[in-house]
Design a protein around this nucleic acid. Sequence first.
DNA 1: ACTTTTGGACTGACCGGTCAGTTCAAATAT
DNA 2: ATATTTGAACTGACCGGTCAGTCCAAAAGT
Lengths: 204, 204
Amino acid sequence: MDSTSTRRRNTRQKLYEAAVTLIAEKGFSSTSVEEIAERAGVAKGTVYYNFKSKSELFEELLRYGVGLLTASLQEAADETAARGGGKVESLDAMIRAGLLFIHRYPAFTQLYVAELWRTNRAWQSTLLVVRQQAVAVVERVLTEGVANGELSEEIDIPLTAAALVGMVLVAALDWQAFQSERSLDDVHAALSRLLHGRVGGGRS
Amino acid sequence: MDSTSTRRRNTRQKLYEAAVTLIAEKGFSSTSVEEIAERAGVAKGTVYYNFKSKSELFEELLRYGVGLLTASLQEAADETAARGGGKVESLDAMIRAGLLFIHRYPAFTQLYVAELWRTNRAWQSTLLVVRQQAVAVVERVLTEGVANGELSEEIDIPLTAAALVGMVLVAALDWQAFQSERSLDDVHAALSRLLHGRVGGGRS
DNA sequence: ACTTTTGGACTGACCGGTCAGTTCAAATAT
DNA sequence: ATATTTGAACTGACCGGTCAGTCCAAAAGT
């Protein structure tokens, strides 16, 4: 009944884990299939038994990872709403959820950012879908906030959503790479202040 | 006896331009030296006459590009200051300068973002220096703004600077890749609104 | 109970091909 | 004259993908 045996699922999981860190470190094309297999404790042929090609392994990895991210963002938004919080509060909670995700899966985030804007690559279309999934969660909250009256009607939803996602992404990676002594709360506080407009102040 | 003749400088320039687009498209390791030479209209041997290695060509490219960026940001800040504008105004001008830069040199930005957070690479130290150069310009303006009283003393300068840079970077790349029909003014307006706190509505 | 068969999962040597880097003699520019 | 470029040949390493064969647990046959 189970088309994928537990044994096979286990092997796949090990390959994902090996691939994600290696590709984050060295990039897709300078990571060899043999290396991935070796780190997963498996023979090279096994990779090709489980995946059609190196790219396919990578694409499935992307789908899997972004699935985790959007679920986590959505959950943060829902949980805030259930508590009767406003949309700005939801955005704030999503920022924190994003930071937590990146903290937990730093390699995946690195790899996502590094590959997202490349053109002409085989997995371009996969990335497009996957990006849209992530941004859509933020866009939805912004839309609701505008309908709500809580957010100004002037805001440009797609652009603002992209900017917010970018802010979190880059701030988190930077935190990780260059300011790792700071706490998650520090980073969250700094981003939250930006979101609430306590940096550029409200006038003019 | 110019240590670098104009002829040589010209060849270098052509190689930079060829390398930047190719590497942005396909990544460092799947771009071959022969390809770069061919696109530059130059023989492969010439590459090795002008640069020690492929990596060295890439590192010099990074230094060259970030030099252009920081100069452009600094100029925007200075020009605002000369007009008697405040620090928030300077930040706004820098956002625009950043967007313009990315619009003019999209390939360089792609490549920078894709390589910045990789670990264990040969040019890691070059990237660190180069990133610090770019972020420092923003940090300086923030510091002045705090000293000024124009910005709250509560803001966390390194984290806020990183977040602002990230916001611009990702918003611009996203604009380029997924929303290219929007005008530069639209994108600038959206980011400006975030900076001025007109999204999360400010008082508290 | 016990042998035999089956087929999914895995292995690793191997193949065709690519690429960075080196070398160099001849050509061309300054 | 000297600096720079050319273009082609060559090397040695590496890499993605293939494939004939091994392993083994469970089903089928006796």
